[in-house]
Design a binder for these strands. Sequence first.
DNA 1: TCAAATAGTGAATAGGTATTCATTCTTTGG
DNA 2: CCAAAGAATGAATACCTATTCACTATTTGA
Lengths: 214, 214
Amino acid sequence: MSDDGVSRKERDRLVRESDFLDSAESLFAEMGFYETSMEDVAKRAEYATGTIYRYFESKETLYHALLLRKGRQYFGQTQVVFEKSNDPLLQLRGLICCKVAFFAENWDFLRIYMTELAAKTGGSARACRPPQELDDDFENYLSNLRDVFVRGMKAGVFRKLNPDHVVAAFIGMSNECLQTSLAEGVSGDVLEEIEMFVFDFVSGGIVTEKGRSV
Amino acid sequence: MSDDGVSRKERDRLVRESDFLDSAESLFAEMGFYETSMEDVAKRAEYATGTIYRYFESKETLYHALLLRKGRQYFGQTQVVFEKSNDPLLQLRGLICCKVAFFAENWDFLRIYMTELAAKTGGSARACRPPQELDDDFENYLSNLRDVFVRGMKAGVFRKLNPDHVVAAFIGMSNECLQTSLAEGVSGDVLEEIEMFVFDFVSGGIVTEKGRSV
DNA sequence: TCAAATAGTGAATAGGTATTCATTCTTTGG
DNA sequence: CCAAAGAATGAATACCTATTCACTATTTGA
């Protein structure tokens, strides 16, 4: 037994699981869910095809597991931001910072997550349904985010716009910015630039005083 | 021969093609490319499975054809906007108007297009590759859009921000807004609201004077 | 060291679906 | 009205890949 009550065997199993999840994540991001075969995943993880099934019931289970792993981690981090402060502007900054940092570290996941999201709103054009658990976390995130904007409007620091639209706009623009910016490679500078840009754009838009007066 | 030099037979063929494209479009939007079988498409169009192959070489060809049909139409309309005026602010307004109107009429296509786009930037997590022709149109659209922002910055009506980020932000936020807003049903009011919101958000962001001074 | 238990293997199975094609139905032109 | 040409049909084919499982290899505990 190790210090945290997890046997060597269990740890081994977790490592193996994680190997499969990593392979699957990178392959799904690169090729897509359907273009990736279980054999591909196994090969990348350096195991035989059948071995995966000792760790995951099915391809769908594997997919769910990888979505949950990173997804919950991400929503967990946003939750901290929501709870840390009550100031809408600070929360907004915190969320952006959190998002940029997380997705810079989890580029493959971002790709998968965005495909999910693209398919989500309308109904179903998706690889295969994401786990309910994650949907719930996402709903919760949405409602917290909406709340930030609503409070900001009440406090007079945000303009009074349709908060649902603001939520959509914020999510869409930040995702797309991250996706295109991180497409190449990432350096610390780029990260900071994106973070600043997103905040700047969300807060002030693009039109100048001069533009407004025309 | 009809007035435009198209025989009855040819017109028939076009109608049939269009039937298949319509079925495929709604099914792909609803279920996704891989979850939709050729039999489903045929059934919805009220034909036998084999008949599709008299009109389209393969499932991929069918998919390409439906992307091209609407895609080119959309990019054609944006092209008109780019050429109609030289004033960045007017062009921006025009593009938003054009986008909202087009996607309100082509909701299914928007769903497919967004899945495409989500997969695009990174590399490939897509149903199956979109036709090169459409990629080219998209590239062209991107560069024209970028140009609008760059000119606006030069003219002093837009703030000097990284134009590539602005392009991404604009596309992402407008897509996401459309997707979530149009998710339910569409009425004229909603359309106008979205159009105004998108312009408002892009131009002025969400922070008020008061928010800025804190 | 050995036998039981556990883990890994990859060829075989099973099910699904894109695509084909021999056949049947419909249209056309004489 | 008839035969040839064109269109439609849907059962059969061919292929692909998720999943299984009998077998081999490794680890464990005595």
